[in-house]
Amino acid sequence: MTIRDQLKQHDLNVAHVVERRDVDKNAFFAFIRIKKDKRGFQVPSNSRLSEIARQFAEIDVEIHFILRSSDIDDIEGGVRATLLHSYGKYVRNAFLSVHGAAGEVWIEPKTQEIQSKLNEVERTLESYFGNTFIVLDRVRLTTKERLPTDTALLSSIRQLSPCGLEHLKDALGIRGFSIPPDGWLSRSLDRLRKRGHVVRRKDGQYALSIQGLRSLGTSKTRMSPDVRRVLALSRRGA
């Protein structure tokens, strides 16, 4: 009985099996078609595939499963065709990522004019996904700015503390973030202050509260935030 037949006995949807010639052992690539159930879980599950691979290993056959999600590939093809058909002037390409039942669509834009069409695009996609198990999570552009999250703000303030807006903006830029506008940054810091994670001193400078420090935690590695803080202080001559 061939490896393919043996795999089929495990109820796997086998596209094909290829004997590996790049290794000196009895090893195979098994290309398997997988699908998602109504809850978005993979069928067959990874644990089931691992168990099957283990059973083959007992008879000295190494099986390496290569998974292919036919249903998601089809849905992604539909997303791309829909967007290129309706918004071809703005969209160069589109990709779908599925997490459970949540679908995230990434658009590679031709021009930034796509920004004004995003609501319309979302409605089109919601309607398209209506016939599938996927629920639209969000639409993202590949050229989107990278703004700092609350955690990034806290970690920068920990290193620089006490620091003002300008100092913080410079540090965020050095870390590779898009420099946020002052209004955006002030609102974010105010939110963190109300949450009790930062304190604003009378001179307008910001520092972390004990609660903020605890939320970030620390580590004992060479690049620990405490070591970085000491280095930052020494650079400043404090």
């Binding site: 609350d150 955690t151 806290l154 939320s215 935690g217």
Partner: peptide, 14 residues
């Protein structure tokens, strides 16, 4: 690890 930091800091976006 980052996710745990985000959870402790109530950073829902991250």
């Amino acid at each position: 690890k980052v996710q745990e930091i985000a959870r402790r800091g109530e950073d829902n976006i991250l």
